[in-house]
Design a protein around this nucleic acid. Structure first.
Lengths: 159, 159
DNA sequence: TTTATTGTTCATTTTTATTTGAACAACCTC
DNA sequence: GAGGTTGTTCAAATAAAAATGAACAATAAA
């Protein structure tokens, strides 16, 4: 017998599905976290498969993702060899991970690329009339500013 | 005769393709902006179709998106009825648009949903033992903090 | 008018991302 | 070790997103 989702659980699932999708995570990740978040109880894979009615594969992948995010933590349960997980209350981990793992590396990569472009553009002469160069110099300002903003934002969301 | 993309143009296109993809825009938007950005010249649809070798449909859509973002601006050209566009230097428009049009509405929507959930959760009694309620209260803190962060970040990126 | 050019729209095709489920490995219980 | 659980992996199926290109509207030029 599989217990139906309560209205509250459904709402939470919807809430977190939209939330994680902002950051490009698949729906299943939001479903899993949404259910685990409201209840607060440690849960096992089987429960999630049954209650969310999604495949074992998706739950396995989803749990791996959430584990990597630090959004759920393993919990030991006496006399039960199954892996239990509990949703961490700190939702900001998901956002932080997005910044650290997705945004920052890309910005750093962008920084390198931009240097290469400046190099190329200077071949056209380092003058006021070299429009591509002018534009790339302006771009560099934004690039730098963006990179500076990240730690700033992280701190804001931290505590 | 269609002029080949220069090395610099190619680099710029790649750069902006990755950039816009962070914010969930399609590749074509990055290609168009990337090409327009380095050159700085006003351009027409036909040129973009030829030089980027992408379809008229994609360019039309992409230009519409970039126009809506304010990332490109219409430019009048004497004796030429075609619509010319020029890339605005202010790259932050794209980021700002992401915040204003995608993130903020979702956060506001999230806020409403969360109130509904709190309502539902309180039915279980407003006590310390009502774990879902406790968790939703914690979530509300993050929700609020996230919403506060947005104008902050926007200001940081502004000027 | 008629014909050519420019740009939009949208049904179809293509590409990419996600989910499924079967096969498998690890581990426990008896 | 046979049989039962638990969890992972990955090829195939499905769903979602983006690109294409043909049909169309609007306008200009002949």
């Amino acid at each position: 017998m599989v217990s139906q989702l309560t209205k509250l659980e459904e709402e939470s699932i919807d809430y977190f599905v939209s939330f994680v999708q902002i950051f490009g995570f698949p729906k299943s990740v939001g479903q899993i976290y949404g259910l685990m978040f409201v209840s607060g109880e440690p849960m096992v894979m089987g429960q999630l498969v049954e209650r969310l009615e999604i495949s074992k594969g998706s739950v396995s992948q989803g749990l791996a993702t959430l584990k990597a995010l630090g959004a759920i933590v393993p919990v030991e349960v006496e006399n039960d060899r199954r892996e239990h997980f509990q949703a961490d209350l700190d939702v900001s981990r998901i956002v932080n991970h997005f910044f650290s793992e997705r945004l920052e590396p890309r910005l750093q990569n962008g920084s390198r690329r931009l240097e290469g472009m400046l190099e190329l553009a200077r071949e056209g002469g380092d003058t006021k009339e070299n429009e591509p160069l002018n534009r790339l110099k302006a771009l560099k300002k934004w690039q730098t500013r963006g990179q500076r903003a990240i730690p700033f934002i992280k701190r804001f969301l931290k505590n």
